[in-house]
Write a protein that binds this DNA or RNA. Structure first.
Lengths: 169, 169
DNA sequence: TAAAAAACCGGATTATGTGCGAAAGTGCTT
DNA sequence: AAGCACTTTCGCACATAATCCGGTTTTTTA
């Protein structure tokens, strides 16, 4: 029904790679870059969207210009790790607008939370007013980011298998 | 010359908030949502781009469908933290396609690196073939993500100050 | 309060997205 | 290797959206 990554040919993957970088590229220009006419190119894009390879399109803002230049990672350990406790934590954290990412991790602590705020004052406020009120938090460890070396929303799209003369199906 | 966040009125901020979620929303529709006609709305968008509030537009892919479903965080400690060593590390890491984020942090270690790969095998290969060859790495700590609770590219855009009758300039 | 500047709107023009039938290419069967 | 079915592509026609322009309204400033 829905294709796997293996089913995508070279052009489909090219399209994904390009749109990951230039989400608003006009279809005519995209078509030119992948050596297709606009019609089949658009058809491919629509299909990739329909099949879920492309989730959505977003504008990326400059964090500094919207007062979110400071990145802080917080390791969080919960008081108990029963399913309901985890679920409750998930719910709460997902609702905090400062939180950009939240992952449940295996290892020495339970969660790794990434937040963006304006400055240290903003962080203190977040920690005191928002995170403290989240139920079940036993311990937190703060890591302040001094420099963002790399930030990339794009993921690597591997090249198609050379030609196994196919076998799937 | 270029505006600050404080100079943006309610409509500009609305536009930013909307485009962060729907980067490909047609201008006519965007205009309708912010109660403007298409012309001034487009003018505002263009201006926000020109002034750098909007950095670019991208398509977000489904990591699972492109064989990048596994997220791993790696804490990295360097052998020495001289400026050139840091710079060398930055350069190398930025070139690795599996690396989605890399931050220099203050605290117990030096870097926090986020990577996306297909599975554990992919991670082992990355660690052995890619990261190992990066110069100056003394120690690494791996944290495997079991569940992505929240992932958000949007940042919070604060509401404008009620009305200080202005004073800037 | 008046002048100047900025923002807005409507309509015209241009460019882009989209639908359709025909043509070309591909792979499989016999 | 020829033929058939299927997929993909193309080019043209149409619909929709982006862009430009002139004039009007609103806001800012002196």
């Amino acid at each position: 029904m829905s294709r796997q990554l293996e089913d995508l040919d070279r052009i489909d993957r090219q399209i994904l790679r390009i749109l990951q970088r230039h989400g608003r590229l006009p279809n005519v220009e995209l078509a030119r870059r992948v050596n297709l006419s606009p019609t089949p190119c658009l058809e491919r894009v629509k299909r990739l969207e329909r099949e879920g390879f492309i989730r959505d399109y977003v504008a990326l803002l400059d964090p500094l210009k919207v007062h979110a230049g400071l990145v802080v990672y917080i390791q969080v350990t919960l008081a108990n790790t029963a399913t309901e406790a985890l679920e409750a934590f998930n719910q709460h954290v997902a609702g905090l607008e400062e939180v950009q990412e939240c992952h449940m991790v295996a290892g020495g602590f339970d969660y790794l939370v990434k937040i963006r705020i304006k400055d240290m004052l903003g962080y203190r406020r977040f920690l005191g007013e928002k995170l403290a009120s989240v139920p079940g938090v036993r311990e937190t460890h703060t890591y302040v980011v001094m420099e963002e070396v790399k930030t990339d929303t794009a993921v690597a799209v591997p090249d198609p298998e050379p030609k196994t003369k196919s076998a799937r199906r």
